[in-house]
Computed example of a mutant assay.
Amino acid sequence: MGGMNRNQMMAQARKMQEQLVAAQQKAAATEVSASAGGGSVKVTATGDLRISSITIDPQAVDPEDVDMLQDMILAAVNDALEQAESATEKAMSAVTGGLNIPGLF
């Protein structure tokens, strides 16, 4: 492999593994936010796909239309999780050079 010996390959693999762990930790600490209903519902998620907060404007709570509030929450949660997943993929891609390594993330 281009004159690279086994020890060099192992050292390079260890370095990449360390970079991946650092990227995963950084991605997990990254927060993204999304909103729905013109900002009536706001959701914050982390890069490890955890919801860290949900804020609901009291004016969005209409006992006669609970379905709309549920839809806004669902839309904001899904958007926040998509953004978090995208941010994590971007961080990991920076380390792997765009290689798709199965089971990595």
Rank of each mutant, 00 (worst) to 15 (best):
M1K: 12
M1A: 15
G2M: 12
G2P: 06
G2H: 10
G2F: 14
N5H: 08
R6V: 15
R6L: 15
R6W: 11
R6K: 08
R6E: 02
R6H: 11
R6Q: 09
N7A: 15
N7S: 15
Q8D: 06
M9I: 14
M9Q: 09
A11D: 00
A11M: 10
Q12G: 15
Q12S: 14
A13N: 04
A13G: 09
A13V: 10
A13P: 03
A13K: 04
R14G: 11
R14E: 01
R14L: 09
K15L: 14
K15N: 09
K15I: 04
K15Y: 02
M16W: 02
M16S: 14
Q17F: 07
E18I: 08
Q19V: 01
V21D: 10
V21A: 13
A23R: 04
Q25T: 01
Q25S: 14
Q25E: 06
K26F: 09
K26T: 07
A27N: 02
A28W: 03
A29G: 11
T30V: 08
E31F: 14
E31N: 09
V32L: 00
S33R: 04
A34L: 07
A34T: 00
A36C: 08
G37Y: 00
G38D: 03
G38M: 09
G39K: 01
G39V: 04
S40A: 15
V41P: 03
T44K: 12
A45H: 01
A45W: 01
T46A: 14
T46D: 08
D48R: 06
D48N: 15
D48P: 02
L49Q: 05
R50A: 14
I51V: 15
I51W: 06
I51E: 05
S52E: 03
S53P: 00
S53T: 00
I54A: 13
T55K: 11
T55H: 12
D57W: 04
P58L: 06
A60G: 09
V61N: 08
E64H: 08
D65Q: 07
V66P: 00
D67I: 12
M68H: 02
L69T: 00
L69N: 04
L69Y: 04
L69C: 14
L69K: 05
Q70R: 11
Q70H: 09
Q70I: 08
D71V: 12
D71K: 08
M72H: 03
M72A: 11
M72W: 05
M72G: 08
I73G: 11
L74V: 14
L74M: 13
L74E: 06
A76E: 02
A76H: 00
V77K: 05
N78H: 14
N78G: 15
D79N: 10
A80C: 13
A80M: 06
L81D: 03
L81W: 01
E82H: 11
Q83F: 10
A84R: 03
A84Y: 01
E85S: 15
E85K: 12
S86T: 04
S86L: 06
S86F: 05
A87P: 00
E89K: 11
K90T: 04
K90N: 05
A91G: 07
M92D: 02
S93K: 01
S93R: 01
A94N: 02
A94G: 14
G98L: 10
N100K: 13
I101V: 13
I101T: 07
P102F: 13
